[in-house]
Simulated assay, not measured.
Amino acid sequence: MQPQALMLFAAGFGTRMGDLTRSRPKPLIPVAGRPLIDHALDLCDAAGVGRVVVNTHYLADQIHTHLSGRPGIAISHEAPDILDTGGGLRHALPLLGAGPVFSLNSDAVWTGPNPLDQLRAEWDGARMDGLLLLVPRDRARGHGGTGDFIPDAAGRLTRGPGAVYSGAQILKPDLLADIRDSAFSLNRLWDSMLAQGRLYGVLHRGGWCDVGHPGGITQAEAMLAEARDD
Rank of each mutant, 00 (worst) to 15 (best):
M1T: 12
P3S: 09
P3W: 05
L8R: 11
F9E: 02
G12H: 15
G14Y: 06
G14N: 02
T15E: 06
T15P: 00
R16P: 01
R16S: 09
M17F: 14
G18N: 02
D19L: 11
T21A: 04
R22V: 04
P25W: 10
P25M: 06
P27F: 04
P30V: 07
V31D: 10
R34N: 07
R34E: 13
P35C: 06
P35F: 03
I37Y: 05
A40M: 10
D45G: 10
A46L: 10
A47M: 03
G48D: 03
G48K: 10
G50H: 13
V53G: 06
V54S: 00
N55E: 14
T56N: 14
Y58G: 06
A60T: 05
D61F: 00
I63Y: 05
H64N: 01
T65Q: 15
H66V: 03
L67R: 03
S68F: 08
G69L: 09
R70F: 05
G72W: 00
A74F: 09
S76I: 02
H77N: 11
E78F: 06
E78L: 15
A79M: 12
I82A: 13
G87E: 10
G88F: 14
H91R: 13
L93Y: 10
L96V: 04
G99E: 07
V101M: 04
N105S: 06
N105H: 10
S106H: 08
P113L: 03
N114F: 00
N114I: 04
P115S: 00
D117F: 01
D117T: 11
D117P: 02
Q118L: 14
R120Q: 15
E122D: 09
W123L: 07
D124H: 13
D124N: 13
D124E: 12
R127H: 06
M128R: 12
M128F: 13
D129W: 02
G130W: 03
L131V: 06
L131G: 09
L133G: 03
L134S: 11
L134R: 08
V135N: 10
V135E: 15
P136I: 11
R137A: 15
D138N: 11
D138F: 02
R139A: 14
A140T: 08
R141M: 14
G142I: 01
H143M: 12
T146S: 14
D148H: 13
P151C: 08
A154V: 06
G155N: 05
R156G: 00
L157M: 11
G160F: 09
G160Q: 11
A163E: 11
Y165G: 12
S166M: 05
A168F: 09
L171Y: 11
L176M: 07
A177Q: 14
D181E: 14
S182F: 01
F184T: 02
L186E: 12
L186Q: 12
L186D: 12
R188F: 12
L189I: 15
W190P: 04
W190Y: 15
L194K: 06
G197I: 07
R198G: 01
L199F: 06
G201D: 03
L203I: 13
H204S: 05
G206E: 00
G206N: 05
G207P: 04
G207D: 01
W208L: 07
D210L: 13
V211I: 05
V211F: 05
H213I: 01
I217V: 15
T218H: 12
T218Q: 11
A220I: 08
E221H: 02
E221F: 02
E221Y: 04
A222T: 13
M223G: 04
L224D: 01
E226I: 01
E226C: 09
R228Y: 02
D230S: 15
